[in-house]
């Protein structure tokens, strides 16, 4: 028996045109997506990672029928996102988040009732379902307050509540924790994780590396409109080499010292960054037994040297991938 993937995109491109001027119009073309291929399995939390302007929101909007691709084919739940929009919209949820997107003069409950009607949540079930999702996101006590009185975190929870109101099979979350305080962000991540237990496929965009690492089964890295990598967290770490990183910090390093570090066995990359008077070397170790002692030995003249070893984080991998793609 074969199962169709929840999301499938082939060769998706999207070009935006902006015009300036009244009589003589200057047309600027921006290639937001450049041939994106992607498959997300049912029941998976897939994370799309990328810096600002990488094309994450554009891809999300295409997959949720809010934007047409310039070329390429995308199917969600087997339905064409450009042709089967009505049927598809009933089966997916979208959480765009942010301060906007809610009727702010009415209560959260009324906001949800309205969208429940638009989504055709069965009448007999509607009010119970609204109460249920409000409780699930922890807004029961504030349910009858106007949403203009809500904090950013509360609005975000309400966005999520709206997204799941009609029991979507696939939920798209576009940067769900952006701008939230750490506590609200943690609560939001907890909510997202718990959705997985309900059998919902989740497509999440973020530019927080730790968030993708914490939540997602697989991660795609989007850079300048191109999907530069797609794998599990472990797979992505392997992709750029090694699973360890050694960091060394002090007040400046000589070129000879840097060269010595670069030539240590197993070193795949050395990044040299300056933070005011302090210089940090980030040394990526691909293989072998290279440890902090070997690095210390190369930088022996530095009395205040601080060296530490850590696992290569997804942030390291992500920065490598994004750097490689930069012009």
């Amino acid at each position: 028996m074969s199962f169709a993937p929840a999301i499938e995109a082939r060769g998706i491109t999207r070009v935006f045109q902006s015009r300036k001027g009244f009589f003589h119009q200057d047309v600027t073309r921006t290639e937001a997506l450049r041939g994106v291929d992607l498959t997300v399995d049912a029941g998976e939390i897939f994370g799309l990672l990328g810096p600002n302007g990488a094309g994450k929101t554009t891809l999300t909007k295409i997959l949720t029928t809010l934007l047409l691709p310039t070329s390429g084919i995308a199917r969600v739940l087997g339905l064409d996102v450009t042709k089967d929009t009505e049927r598809l919209r009933a089966r997916i949820g979208l959480v765009l988040g942010g301060e906007r997107g809610l009727y702010n003069r009415i209560s959260a409950r009324e906001n949800l009732r309205y969208f429940a009607d638009l989504y055709g949540v069965p009448v007999a079930e509607r009010d119970r379902r609204v109460t249920e999702v409000l409780e699930w996101v922890g807004l029961t006590e504030a349910a009858d307050r106007r949403t203009e009185e809500y904090s950013r975190g509360m609005k975000q929870k309400l966005h999520i509540a709206r997204g799941i109101l009609h029991r979507p099979e696939v939920l798209f979350l576009d940067e769900p924790t952006i701008g939230l305080d750490p506590k609200s962000a943690r609560e939001t991540r907890k909510l997202i994780r718990s959705l997985l237990g309900q059998g919902v496929t989740i497509f999440l965009t973020t530019h927080y590396m730790f968030e993708a690492e914490e939540l997602c089964h697989r991660i795609g890295v989007l850079s300048r409109g191109r999907l530069v990598a797609i794998d599990t967290v472990a797979g992505l770490r392997d992709l750029v080499g090694g699973d360890r990183t050694i960091e060394a910090e002090d007040y400046g390093f000589e070129d000879a010292e840097l060269a010595a570090v670069r030539h240590l066995p197993g070193v795949s990359k050395v990044v040299h960054e300056e933070y005011g008077p302090v210089t940090r070397l980030t040394i990526r170790v691909r293989e072998g037994d290279l440890g902090v002692d070997a690095v210390r030995a190369c930088l022996i003249n530095h009395g205040g040297l601080q060296v530490r070893e850590r696992r290569t984080s997804l942030e390291d991998v992500y920065l490598d991938l994004v750097e490689e793609e930069a012009p």
Binding site: T64, T65, L66, E86, R87, R89, A90, L94, L96, G98, R100, G101, L102, Y103, N104, F115, L118, Y119, G120, R162
Partner: peptide
């Protein structure tokens, strides 16, 4: 202005009914 046009359009109901 409120940013509700996008979520409303993303619902299955054609906007003309709204």
């Amino acid at each position: 202005n409120l940013g509700t046009l996008e979520p409303t359009i993303s619902a299955p109901t054609p906007y003309v009914f709204v």
